[in-house]
């Protein structure tokens, strides 16, 4: 159970915190509907509107209202929406592949010391390699297009899920395992009935981290490879000096990120519900 190698920061942040026995009530915002927060955001928009209307008069800093109307007209024309569709589809595929592979391989590494020792050197070499450095290689191998985009997202989001699963499986408390064993549950039973569910909180934390990494990657790769999607849209608008549309694209990316974190947080509370108390205590 001891973690000999230094765990990654993600893994430490994601490691299952001790579950506080049911004292904290199920309180707190459920789906992040936060009137005060929205009021502040709206106020900020008004301030920026006033500033850009008066003091800041650069052509490259459009007023929020102009960005808003550009967004609406672009949505009407469908250009930005098809970009959004491409981006979301690549995002989901990449994150899905990363989650599938990361959980399976992480669990396998956690289950077998031999496997861990075998793969460790390669893993430790590949993990710190910035995934964007692999984009040229990926373009040569897979060509420009959604395959490269998906592959890069999957590659970058794979590591947090892999490591969190590994440490989750490894970090199962000895008593949890001994309990099952004392009832005559065998090795495979302990693995599937105790270690995997115990690791779920840690896996969920890995997925949460990867969900934001995947968004960074999808936009970056689309910008670099000019292969469609919102990233490409933003670059196209920049080159055309259509700053309102460019900001509209950026705003949309921000909105996606916000919604993703809401959805992931909601799913996490549903799927690994027993971890809610510790997360509230931990104040992540």
């Amino acid at each position: 159970m001891s973690l000999t190698s230094a765990p990654t920061e993600e893994a430490v942040a994601g490691a299952p915190a001790p579950v506080a026995p049911g004292r904290a009530a199920r309180r707190g915002p459920r789906l992040g509907v936060n009137p005060r927060g929205f009021a502040f955001a709206l106020g900020l928009l008004v301030v920026i509107e006033l500033l850009t209307a008066t003091l800041v008069t650069s052509a490259y800093v459009p007023r929020p209202s102009e960005v808003g109307s550009a967004l609406l007209s672009e949505i009407g024309e469908g250009d930005i929406l098809s970009g959004l569709g491409d981006t979301l589809w690549a995002y989901l595929q990449g994150l899905g592949i990363a989650a599938g592979l990361g959980v399976i391989l992480g669990a396998a590494l956690g289950a077998s010391n031999v496997a861990y020792q075998t793969f460790r050197v390669v893993i430790e070499f590949l993990r710190p390699l910035p995934s964007v450095a692999l984009i040229p290689f990926s373009i040569l191998l897979l060509g420009v297009g959604s395959t490269t985009t998906v592959a890069m997202i999957a590659y970058a989001s794979f590591w947090p899920i892999l490591f969190n699963t590994y440490y989750g499986v490894r970090g199962v408390h000895a008593t949890s395992v001994e309990t099952a064993r004392s009832f005559g549950v065998g090795g495979l039973g302990v693995f599937f009935r105790v270690q995997i569910p115990s690791a779920a909180t840690s896996v969920a934390a890995g997925v949460r981290i990867s969900a934001s990494i995947a968004l960074i990657l999808v936009i970056t790769v689309e910008m670099l490879t000019r292969s469609g999607g919102l990233g490409h849209y933003i670059v196209r608008m920049q080159v055309a000096i259509r700053t309102e549309e460019m900001y509209a694209g950026i705003f949309l990316v921000g909105l996606i990120g916000y919604l993703i974190s809401l959805v992931v947080g909601h799913l996490e509370r549903r799927v690994v519900f027993w971890n809610v108390d510790s997360r509230e205590d931990g104040g992540r």
């Binding site: 408390h173 000895a174 105790v194 027993w274």
Partner: peptide, 12 residues
């Protein structure tokens, strides 16, 4: 029956 029920019971 273990002393540490928080670990011995399965929270899921």
């Amino acid at each position: 029956v273990f002393q540490d029920y928080t670990r011995s019971l399965y929270p899921w």
